[in-house]
Simulated assay, not measured.
Amino acid sequence: MTAQVDYGPRDALLVVDMQNDFCEGGALAVEGGGGLVPGINAEIDAARQAGALIIASRDWHPIDHISFEHRGGPWPVHCVQDTEGAAFHPDLALDDTTIRVSKATAFDADAYSAFDGTGLAGYLKEKGIERVVICGLALDVCVRATVLAARDAGFATLLLGQLSAAVEPDAVPDCRREFEDAGAEVRA
């Protein structure tokens, strides 16, 4: 596969939540999630070669996270810290230079965006990043929140739609309209 984007040193590729629990066989699997890995790896390789930052976000929940159904939340137990389900997909081409951002780590607060409570926006601005390229899981949940937060933080934002999958595929058109209304570019 070849990359969809021409990257430069003022770009950051942000791979959202490509974790075992969100891929086939996981606790909260998104259909087609694992199939995104080869295309995402092509983007990672292109970004790396161009000197762009590579960031991988992950849900990193404590055992009794507030988002879990047994605590009154909407989700089954997933992405519990230091479990196989919380690990990145084993074929994802992350190396030691990849910046890993953990979110939703507090017992009593949920976080969907990679920017929510992580300090990521300030870090990217400090590094001179102007554009954030986003892909991953799930398009209608954490990818959605991350795209909108990147725009709110003032970054040019590009969503790689072919490298993102939704929990509810019927939600994709509404998400795309919302992204475009917020000023994000959506590449199919």
Rank of each mutant, 00 (worst) to 15 (best):
residue 51 G to L: 03
residue 5 V to I: 15
residue 183 G to C: 05
residue 74 P to D: 05
residue 9 P to D: 13
residue 40 I to P: 03
residue 14 L to S: 06
residue 43 E to N: 03
residue 114 A to W: 02
residue 99 I to D: 13
residue 73 G to P: 06
residue 186 V to R: 03
residue 82 D to E: 15
residue 48 R to C: 00
residue 75 W to S: 01
residue 165 A to F: 07
residue 171 A to G: 13
residue 105 T to F: 11
residue 185 E to K: 12
residue 21 D to G: 08
residue 120 L to G: 04
residue 99 I to L: 15
residue 160 L to I: 07
residue 23 C to R: 04
residue 14 L to D: 00
residue 42 A to P: 06
residue 52 A to I: 10
residue 2 T to C: 10
residue 23 C to S: 04
residue 114 A to Q: 06
residue 24 E to C: 02
residue 1 M to A: 14
residue 150 A to Q: 00
residue 178 E to R: 11
residue 82 D to Q: 10
residue 45 D to A: 15
residue 35 G to Y: 02
residue 153 A to F: 08
residue 15 V to H: 04
residue 99 I to F: 09
residue 151 R to H: 03
residue 84 E to Q: 13
residue 43 E to C: 04
residue 116 D to M: 12
residue 141 V to T: 10
residue 4 Q to A: 11
residue 38 P to H: 07
residue 172 V to Q: 00
residue 148 L to P: 04
residue 84 E to A: 15
residue 15 V to Y: 03
residue 94 L to R: 01
residue 82 D to V: 09
residue 12 A to I: 00
residue 162 Q to P: 09
residue 158 L to F: 00
residue 91 D to V: 02
residue 3 A to E: 01
residue 94 L to Y: 00
residue 150 A to G: 01
residue 156 A to N: 09
residue 19 Q to I: 09
residue 50 A to E: 07
residue 106 A to S: 14
residue 25 G to M: 05
residue 74 P to F: 07
residue 157 T to E: 03
residue 37 V to E: 01
residue 18 M to H: 05
residue 170 D to M: 14
residue 48 R to L: 00
residue 110 D to V: 14
residue 183 G to S: 11
residue 85 G to F: 02
residue 145 A to E: 05
residue 91 D to W: 06
residue 1 M to V: 14
residue 24 E to S: 08
residue 100 R to H: 09
residue 64 D to K: 13
residue 10 R to T: 15
residue 30 V to I: 05
residue 99 I to P: 12
residue 6 D to L: 15
residue 136 G to I: 00
residue 136 G to L: 03
residue 129 I to C: 01
residue 42 A to C: 04
residue 40 I to F: 05
residue 127 K to I: 02
residue 109 A to G: 07
residue 155 F to M: 06
residue 28 L to I: 11
residue 187 R to F: 08
residue 155 F to G: 11
residue 161 G to D: 12
residue 153 A to H: 09
residue 26 G to A: 00
residue 20 N to G: 07
